[in-house]
Design a protein around this nucleic acid. Structure first.
Length: 214
DNA sequence: TTGTGTTTTATTGCCTCC
DNA sequence: GGAGGCAATAAAACACAA
C-alpha cells in the first residue's frame, strides 16, 4: 500500500500518550470532563490530502516538523502558516502535530524524571540497608563489651573490695581504695569523655591494674 | 487472515491570557 | 470574546504474533 512505515517508531515514547500520565497523575489532579461523542471526520473531500480520512504525514514531512520542534516547542501563527505552506499541509494540521508532539515530549520528560527518581530511591535503599547492618554490628559489639565489663567487674568486686553493693553501682565517690575504679580515670584526664573511649580505656587498663593488684 | 496492542492524527471541552 | 494551549479521548493506521 505504502512505504512510509519503516521509521514509524523513531520518536515515539514507550508508553502511549495518555497512559503514562494517567498512571502518574494523582487522582484529584485530573479535571473532570464530560465524555463526548466523537463526530467522525467529515468527508469533505477537500484539504491537501484529498480524502476525508486521516492523512498520515510522509517521513519527510514528519522529519521536517521534528526538526522544527527541536528548535522551538511552540509555534507562532506566522511560523505555523509558513511551515504549512512549505510542507503542503493545512496550518491546522501543523498546529495539531505540534500539540501532539508536545504531549509526547512531556510524557517522555515525566518518564525520564520517574526513572531518575527511581534509581535514586533504589540507591538510597541500598545505602539504608548498609547503614542498618552497621548499626546492628555496632550494637552487637556494644553489648559484648558490656557483658565483658560486667563479667570482669564481678570478678574484681568479689576478690578485692568486698563491699560497695556490687559492680554495677560502683561509684567514684566510694571510699574504696580500689585502684581500677573509675575515679582513677581522672589521673588521665578522660573523665566525662565519650562512652566508647571510656569503656575501652577502662577495659584495657583494668587488665593492667588487675595484674598490678595481683 | 485476523485479533490485538501501539502509535499517530484529529476532535472536543475546558482553561487562561490578552 | 476569541485565540491558543492542554488533557482526554476517538479512531485510523500500523506492526506483529498466532
Amino acid at each position: 500500500m505504502s512505504n512510509m512505515s519503516e521509521e514509524k517508531m523513531l520518536f515515539s515514547s514507550p508508553l502511549s500518550s495518555s497512559s503514562f500520565y494517567s498512571l502518574m497523575a494523582p487522582e484529584g489532579e485530573k479535571r473532570s470532563r464530560r465524555r463526548r461523542k466523537k463526530v467522525k471526520a467529515a468527508d469533505d473531500g477537500g484539504g491537501s490530502g484529498g480524502e476525508g480520512r486521516k492523512r498520515r504525514l510522509t517521513d519527510a514531512q514528519a522529519k521536517f516538523l521534528e526538526m522544527n520542534f527541536g528548535e522551538e516547542r511552540k509555534l507562532e501563527s506566522g511560523r505555523k502558516v509558513q511551515l504549512a505552506t512549505e510542507l503542503g499541509l493545512d496550518p491546522k494540521q501543523v498546529a495539531v502535530w505540534f500539540q501532539n508532539r508536545r504531549a509526547r515530549w512531556k510524557n517522555k520528560q515525566l518518564e525520564d524524571e520517574y526513572l531518575k527518581l527511581k534509581s535514586l530511591h533504589d540507591a538510597n535503599l541500598v545505602d539504608k540497608c548498609h547503614l542498618e547492618n552497621e548499626v546492628l554490628k555496632l550494637k552487637k559489639r556494644l553489648s559484648e563489651s558490656e557483658e565483658e565489663i560486667k563479667r570482669l567487674s564481678g570478678c574484681s568486686s568479689g576478690g578485692v573490695a568486698g563491699g560497695g553493693g556490687g559492680g554495677e553501682g560502683a561509684s567514684p565517690s566510694s571510699s574504696s581504695t580500689n585502684t581500677y575504679q573509675p575515679a582513677a580515670l581522672g589521673e588521665f584526664g578522660v573523665e566525662g569523655e565519650d562512652l566508647m573511649y571510656e569503656t575501652e580505656y577502662t577495659f584495657s587498663n583494668y587488665i593492667m591494674d588487675w595484674g598490678y593488684l595481683l
